[in-house]
C-alpha cells in the first residue's frame, strides 16, 4: 500500500503525521518513508542519519559546433525560450529547458544530441530499524519538481508499505505524488485557511479517485467547520490532535511526539487501522 499524507495548506502538520505514523508502525513492519516535498524536504530532520545519494537527471541538448549552421530552427521550435541562436554561436539556458528533446528532432544537421544534467538528488538512509527513508531534493533555482518527485517515487515502487509526505498546494507536484496512490490522509487545522485549502486538495484526490480521510491538527475542541465539510464530502475524520504547546515544541525541535507524549503511539497505530478500513482501500 502507498499512503500519501497531504494537506493543501502548508504547515498544518503533514510531516509531523508522516514521521510519527511511520515510527509507530515500524515497531512491527518494514516501512519506506518517502519525502515528496522536494522543494522543502523536512522528514530527514526527524530522522537524522547517514545518507547515500543518487542524482536526478534531466535531458538537455548538447550542440556540435562543427555541424551547426546557426540556422535557428531549434530556437524557433523551443516552447520555453531556452535556446537563442546568434550569428556565431548558440546560447542555451539549461534552467529553462524542460528536456523535451524537440530541438534534437528539428535540427536538420544532426548537430544536437541529448545529455544529462542534474536537477536534484534522491537521498537514501536507514535511520532506524525497519524504516528506509527516501528523500527527493530539488536543487535550488530549479523548477521541475514533478520530475524529481517521479524519480523519488520510482525508487520506492514495489515495497509493501510506503508512506509519502506530500508537497503543499494543489497543482502538479501534488498530482504527481497522489497519482497511483492507494490512500490519502489530509492533515488540516480548524481555521478558515485550513478549511479553504482542504477543500481544494480533497478535490484533487476526488478527481484521481483516491480514498481519503482527514486528520484535524491543533484542535481546540471546536472543529465544526472542518467536520461539517468532511460530512458533506463523505470524508471520515480519522484522528484529532489537540492544540498543545508540548507537541509544537517537539515538532519544532525535530523530535517525535510519540516518544515525548504518552499514548500517542497507540493513536497513530489506530490512525493506520482506520486508513486501512477506508472504503476502496485494499
Amino acid at each position: 500500500m502507498r499512503l500519501v499524507i497531504a494537506s493543501g495548506k502548508g504547515g498544518t502538520g503533514k510531516t509531523l503525521v508522516a514521521a510519527n505514523l511511520a515510527a509507530s508502525l515500524a515497531a512491527e513492519r518494514e516501512i519506506v518513508l518517502a519525502d515528496c516535498d522536494v522543494e522543502e524536504p523536512n522528514l530527514h530532520l526527524f530522522f537524522p542519519s547517514e545518507e547515500e545519494t543518487l542524482p536526478v537527471m534531466t535531458d538537455v541538448p548538447e550542440f556540435d559546433n562543427s555541424r551547426c549552421t546557426k540556422c535557428g530552427k531549434c530556437g524557433e521550435f523551443c516552447q520555453y525560450g531556452a535556446i537563442v541562436v546568434l550569428k556565431d554561436r548558440i546560447m542555451f539556458f539549461p534552467e529553462m529547458c524542460h528536456g523535451c528533446g524537440g530541438c534534437e528532432i528539428v535540427c536538420p544537421e544532426g548537430a544536437i544530441s541529448l545529455k544529462k544534467r542534474p536537477i536534484g538528488h534522491v537521498a537514501f538512509s536507514a535511520p532506524r530499524e525497519r524504516i528506509i527513508l527516501v528523500t527527493g531534493v530539488m536543487n535550488e533555482r530549479e523548477v521541475m519538481s514533478p520530475h524529481v518527485i517521479r524519480e523519488t517515487l520510482a525508487y520506492t515502487a514495489g515495497h509493501p508499505l510506503i508512506i509519502c509526505d506530500a508537497p503543499p498546494g494543489t497543482a502538479c507536484p501534488l498530482v504527481e505524488t497522489l497519482e497511483g496512490a492507494d490512500a490519502c490522509v489530509f492533515v488540516t487545522e480548524p481555521t478558515p485557511f485550513g478549511l479553504h485549502d482542504l477543500k481544494l486538495a480533497a478535490g484533487v484526490a476526488e478527481v484521481l479517485g483516491i480514498p481519503s480521510g482527514v486528520v484535524i491538527n491543533r484542535s481546540m475542541g471546536d472543529d465544526e467547520i472542518i467536520r461539517e465539510f468532511c460530512q458533506s464530502r463523505n470524508l471520515p475524520v480519522l484522528m484529532v490532535i489537540p492544540f498543545d504547546r508540548e507537541i509544537a515544541v517537539a515538532a519544532n525541535s525535530g523530535d517525535l511526539v510519540i516518544e515525548k507524549i504518552q499514548g500517542m503511539k497507540t493513536r497513530f497505530i489506530e490512525l493506520f487501522e482506520k486508513v486501512r478500513a477506508l472504503p476502496g482501500v485494499e
Binding site: 523536512n42 530532520l45 515538532a251
Partner: peptide, 20 residues
C-alpha cells in the same frame, strides 16, 4: 519564519534562491 528545525532549513533554501 518560525523557530523550528524545519522552518530554518527551508529559510536557508529560500534565501539561497532569492540571492539571485
Amino acid at each position: 519564519t518560525e523557530p523550528g528545525i524545519a522552518a530554518l532549513h527551508d529559510l536557508r533554501r529560500l534565501v539561497a534562491v532569492s540571492a539571485g
